[in-house]
Design a protein around this nucleic acid. Structure first.
Lengths: 141, 141
DNA sequence: CTATTCTTTGTAGTGACTACAAGGTCAACG
DNA sequence: CGTTGACCTTGTAGTCACTACAAAGAATAG
């Protein structure tokens, strides 16, 4: 079960791109990857350089936190070489803003959690646990 | 449709705790809230001070990023007032570590995105978009 | 030919809700 | 007492981006 000149089989594409066959089939199903053709002698999906490139792009964009919807959008945009790229720019900035919002929330969270863990010096009985107390756990005064 | 002395109705509990009736019913269904009793003359769920306290606790813990599974755990632990609170302490520290990991990831992400948005001065044609290029978008050289 | 390892499809599960639809009940107003 | 309208009830399906599995088919090595 290795690739011939007919192209990569799904597990090879997966390995090349740091994904899994399941994810690749999923991407095909939801339409971010085109239906692979099944040439060669078998009924298996076969992939070429174009597919490697496209999937690599998808993974990079996903790693940057873009939703599959936005990835679809980016792919579509990149196929219109003569249009201006303002929309791509906008999507990237939007994502940056979203990440910044999330970062702020997480920092606030971290602060609260850090205070929480500092207030408990372990070895208490549950009923006097300062963590539970400051969360207002049920069953205390 | 207001509360009598039989207790709060679900929408009132929701308002008191910053949730929605849907979420409350969901919590009951998955067992972090006990099945409400339906006293009074009707068949509606009725809630008392204990429920307000419990749900408030749940929301606070969720806001700190604890999973519902861990919340269930914390609630269970807090009901054993004589046991030592080491486990609670451990769960909180574990969550802090998880948040720190996530923060690190997000900061790396932010960096990459920020570089990405800075490299595009808009108004380009798609085919020369530096954002798409650095993501390795399909259909370029 | 057979054994093994891949592939295929289809379906269901994850977490933590959220959204709806069809029907029941409450309190109040006239 | 009847009706209105706001709320409740249950049950089911949808979200997001996968992940897991089962049953069956195909490719390859020996």
């Amino acid at each position: 079960m290795t690739s011939t000149d007919a192209g990569l089989i799904i597990s090879e594409l997966a390995e090349h791109t740091g994904t899994t066959p399941e994810t690749i089939r999923y991407y095909e199903r939801v339409g971010v990857l085109p239906a692979a053709d099944r040439k060669g002698n078998g009924r298996y999906r076969r992939y070429g350089a174009t597919d490697v490139q496209r999937l690599t792009f998808i993974r990079r964009a996903r790693d940057l936190g873009f939703s599959l919807d936005v990835v679809r959008n980016l792919l579509h945009l990149s196929e219109q070489p003569d249009h201006p790229c303002d929309e791509v720019d906008r999507l990237a900035r939007e994502q940056l803003v979203a990440v910044d919002r999330k970062l702020e929330q997480l920092l606030t969270l971290r602060d609260a959690l850090s205070k929480l863990t500092q207030c408990c010096d372990s070895g208490h009985a549950m009923s006097e646990c300062r963590i539970l107390n400051s969360l207002g756990a049920p069953g205390r005064a």
